[in-house]
């Protein structure tokens, strides 16, 4: 059964450059995590005691001001960052869409990029071949699929990335912000696709500043501020 459980998770980034900060208490920012000192090193506390639980079918919207820790939390869920404290347990095959340019090679064609993306997610060449037409259809890219990825507009790149990631049927899908790049008709399509995914007992976590998008797509909303959970509803 697909599920995500976080218990008191924290994460600190260490800064390696020597910093001179202005006198304490002066430029406190409402944004970002806490800048603190640990031994001789400066650290940024990006997540601080985050706990929550998601079960099959949940669609969580992550909101909060810039620097609240949304991207960091998604990367912890994906397994890129090992938390500095706390425990995390995840059941299910996870896929993530962070930044359109991650995991795509600008020089390769869209088609080749789909193959690479599939291989990276652990699919065999035959399985990818089988899904290829479906991905191209869903993205509506047509002949553009055989042009190099660098020749795509942002929205076209977003369409391809979304089509590839969701057709490969992840059980847990993490998304950071950017599907906003697609046009209205694609967003409508993307929403339907996410509904299907959630109905198949998947979990979706979507970070966004777009309240309307969160309202439309998500069933739960987690507000982060300065790395702490402010509310969960």
């Amino acid at each position: 059964m697909t599920s995500i459980t976080l218990n008191n998770v924290s994460l600190v980034y260490r800064l390696f450059e020597k910093l001179t900060l202005s006198a304490p208490g002066r430029r406190r920012s409402a944004l970002g995590g806490n800048i603190a000192k640990s031994g001789t090193k400066q650290v940024v506390q990006a997540l601080d005691g985050v706990s929550f639980e998601l079960k099959a079918g949940d669609r969580l919207g992550l909101v909060g001001p810039n620097g609240a820790g949304k991207t960091t939390l998604l990367k912890v869920l994906y397994g890129i960052y090992q938390p500095s404290g706390g425990t995390i347990s995840i059941a299910g095959k996870v896929d993530a869409l962070f930044n359109i340019h991650i995991g795509f090679r600008p020089e390769a064609t869209g088609r080749r990029n789909i193959v690479l993306r599939g291989l990276i997610s652990g699919w065999t060449a035959a399985e990818i071949e089988e899904k290829m037409e479906e991905i191209i259809d869903f993205s509506e890219l047509g002949d553009f699929i055989d042009l190099p990825f660098k020749a795509y507009s942002q929205g076209m790149a977003a369409r391809l990335a979304f089509a590839a990631a969701t057709t490969l049927e992840p059980e847990i899908l993490l998304m950071d912000e950017w599907i906003g790049a697609g046009d209205a008709s694609f967003q409508e399509k993307a929403k339907r696709r996410m509904d299907e995914l959630a109905e198949k007992a998947g979990i979706i976590v979507l970070a966004s500043h777009d309240d309307a998008l969160i309202q439309r797509v998500c069933t739960k909303k987690l507000t982060l501020r300065g790395g702490r959970v402010e509310s969960l509803a």
Binding site: K75, Y78, G79, I80, A96, F98, N99, H101, I102, G103, I120
Partner: peptide, 9 residues
């Protein structure tokens, strides 16, 4: 860096 920070390979 972009792959290491964006995928779990």
């Amino acid at each position: 860096a972009s792959f290491i920070q964006g995928t779990t390979l």
